[in-house]
Design a binder for these strands. Structure first.
Lengths: 170, 170
DNA sequence: GAATCACTACTCGGATAGGGTGTGTCCGAGTATACATGG
DNA sequence: CCATGTATACTCGGACACACCCTATCCGAGTAGTGATTC
């Protein structure tokens, strides 16, 4: 799996924590002055700046983030964390294609069955699809808000620490 | 996902159907004379022979198939389909690594937390791992015997047709 | 003093190279068969 | 006729190229701020 998924999720969480900072804005839409640049988000985890920028662009295309160019520009959450599922992020980065793609080999070669809709007869694709559906359901059921709550439960000091770091070195 | 997974599963099912053929052997261990070559398994679905051979080797290493070299050689099921889960095949081909690997970026950079076991604190990795676990559970719960039963339910004529084809053109 | 305008600096956005993992192919190691040979 | 040894053909097994996608990077488009200029 593309590791940009992990970066994107961390960045979204960081954006949420930063957005709750001093000015009272919550980091969501509405012209809040605190748009965070890709460079700072990358610096926090020592990631390649330009590449993270590319991933964030994908999130913008998916409507998860909103971006603004120019000075004072950067990225902002387009909606609350409770409206962003892990599935949304994965689809935004990895694309909508499912991992197991049935190449319909059952419909090729001497053993071909020409009676329409061959995919419906492929029990293998059906079983693999069922497993992947379970994976997708699990991801779609969990929002970034849930993950954030879990993270704060495990490390209550993290939000304040992150806010501090992003506030300093302005 | 590696598409060799699909090939491997189809080949296993074909081996099982062929094994139940005329001589009364069930295709499992025990010196049954009907070992099927990679070339014939590949020809049935018009797949590249050498590459399918490579995948079948992986199944042998995983103990799913048993191989025999030389004339009259080929591949045979090492155990019954009811003892082969979809997870076994996936692991044999794809390897045991999980798709989402946590690169521990939370432990890098200025925001690093040096209090031991950082992975335990990564709520993202925990959530992704939970989803992947659901996927693995689903695959581990379904055996190739289940898939075969489903396939025969959808296309009752398939086993006989496959047996015929592999018996002919000897 | 206030408004206007050009300039500058900064950020995203998409287009452009490099590396690693699948994808596909090839030739050698090993063996059961068939045959020639000798008893 | 039967046993033995040898040659042979066939199959798996691992080593060798090719291609595609992920990774990483760079430069251009667009914009908010800044300062000078003018009324």
């Amino acid at each position: 799996m593309n590791e940009g998924v992990e970066w994107a999720m961390h960045s979204c969480l960081n954006l949420a924590w930063i957005g709750e900072g001093g000015d009272g804005r919550d980091g969501r839409e509405g012209g809040g002055p605190r748009a965070v640049t890709a460079a700072r988000l990358a610096a926090y985890h020592e990631l390649p700046t330009a590449y993270l920028n590319k991933q964030l662009q994908a999130l913008v295309r998916a409507g998860i983030l909103s971006s603004v160019s120019g000075p004072r520009g950067g990225f902002r959450l387009a909606r609350g964390l409770d409206r962003i599922t892990l599935m949304d992020v994965v689809v935004a980065i990895e694309g909508p294609d499912e991992a197991f793609r049935c190449t319909e080999i059952i419909g090729q070669g001497p053993g071909a069955v020409t009676t329409g809709r061959p995919s419906a007869e492929c029990a293998i694709a059906e079983a693999m699809g069922r497993a992947e559906l379970a994976w997708r359901r699990e991801l779609a059921a969990r929002t970034l808000a849930d993950v954030r709550a879990q993270a704060e439960r495990q490390a209550p000091s993290a939000p304040e620490r992150i806010r501090r770091w992003f506030a300093s070195t302005a």
